[in-house]
Amino acid sequence: MTISLDCERLYPDSDGQPMADNTLQFRWIVLIKENLELLLADRPDVFVAGDLLWYPVEGHPEIRVAPDALVAFGRPKGERGSYKQWEEGNIAPQVVFEILSPGNRSGEMSKKQQFYDDYGVEEYYIYNPDRNNLQGFCRTEAGLRAIEEIQNWTSPRLGIRFVVTATTLELYRPDGRGFLSFLELEQRAEQADQRAEQERQRAEQADQRAQQERQRAERLAAQLRALGIDADS
């Protein structure tokens, strides 16, 4: 118990900073993190998290960062208070996302970029929803380097495609489906349920009509037999 408490004190699960500075930033963080969860739901060896402290070096709790979203291939799903890399097979998250708010400063973001470069991130994406500006960095032999043409860029690790329109960022899964909010997913589920119910009602009505036709045919056949006429001849 003492060891656990000491570890919690040494590597706290919170840095005391809010997850987001405003509703727009929060909405984008949730959108990306939850859609990545859906995309990788059938991969038990891929861990996805949002606003989770990442400690890359044992014994140095001051070296830490909390990406808005991270993806670690080769790590099992499950709950964590923080991502301690030495307890994760020394696997660094390969993909990280940051969503900017007006409170973010260029110096702060430069330090984060250097952190991700130093500790092995393969892909780093930054989106500023207020300015509708997307930047991306991909690892080369020389380290993280800016993606020169980010429009229609496809993530090597995730397979998702980035499209910047005149007003917003759109993200697409490998199968072409777009990232959707909880509300949009619920609305589509309701629409699918409504279509299914309409199809069920149409099928039921068709069965009723067919049954009525059979009943009419049977009554007609009975009337003909009563008159001595063989309806089958």
Rank of each mutant, 00 (worst) to 15 (best):
T2Y: 15
I3E: 08
I3K: 07
S4A: 12
D6P: 03
C7S: 08
R9H: 11
L10Y: 10
S14N: 12
D15Y: 01
P18L: 08
M19N: 09
A20P: 02
D21Q: 13
D21K: 07
T23P: 11
Q25N: 09
R27Y: 04
W28Q: 13
W28R: 02
I29S: 00
I32H: 01
E34V: 13
E37V: 13
L40F: 11
A41Q: 09
D42Y: 01
R43Y: 12
R43M: 03
R43K: 10
D45H: 04
F47A: 01
F47K: 10
L52E: 00
L52N: 00
P56D: 02
P56A: 09
V57M: 11
E58P: 08
E58A: 06
E62M: 15
I63Y: 05
V65P: 01
V65L: 15
A66T: 10
D68R: 00
V71M: 05
R75I: 14
G78Q: 03
E79N: 06
E79V: 05
R80F: 01
S82W: 03
Y83G: 05
K84F: 09
W86S: 12
E87V: 08
E88R: 14
N90S: 15
P93N: 13
F97V: 05
E98T: 02
I99W: 02
L100V: 10
L100Y: 04
S101F: 04
G103Y: 06
N104K: 04
R105L: 12
S106M: 08
S110I: 14
K111E: 15
K112L: 01
D118M: 03
Y119Q: 03
E122C: 09
E123M: 01
Y124P: 15
Y124K: 13
Y125K: 06
N128K: 03
P129T: 00
P129H: 00
L134M: 14
F137C: 03
C138Q: 13
C138H: 07
T140Q: 08
E141L: 14
G143Q: 02
R145W: 07
E148A: 07
E148P: 00
E149Q: 12
I150R: 03
Q151T: 03
N152K: 07
W153L: 10
W153A: 12
S155N: 02
S155F: 00
S155M: 00
P156R: 01
G159N: 01
G159M: 05
R161Y: 02
F162Y: 05
V163W: 02
V164G: 10
A166P: 02
T168F: 15
L169Y: 06
L169A: 09
R173A: 04
P174G: 09
P174N: 10
G176S: 00
R177C: 05
F179V: 11
F179K: 02
L180R: 10
L180A: 13
S181G: 02
S181P: 00
F182M: 15
L183N: 15
L185H: 04
L185A: 07
E186N: 11
R188P: 05
Q191C: 06
A192K: 09
A192I: 14
D193Q: 10
Q194I: 06
R195F: 07
A196L: 12
Q198K: 13
E199G: 07
R202D: 14
R202S: 15
A203D: 07
D207Y: 11
Q208E: 11
Q208V: 14
R209C: 02
A210D: 12
R216Y: 09
R216L: 06
A217N: 06
A222M: 15
Q223R: 11
L227A: 10
I229D: 14
D230Q: 04
A231F: 09
S233N: 11
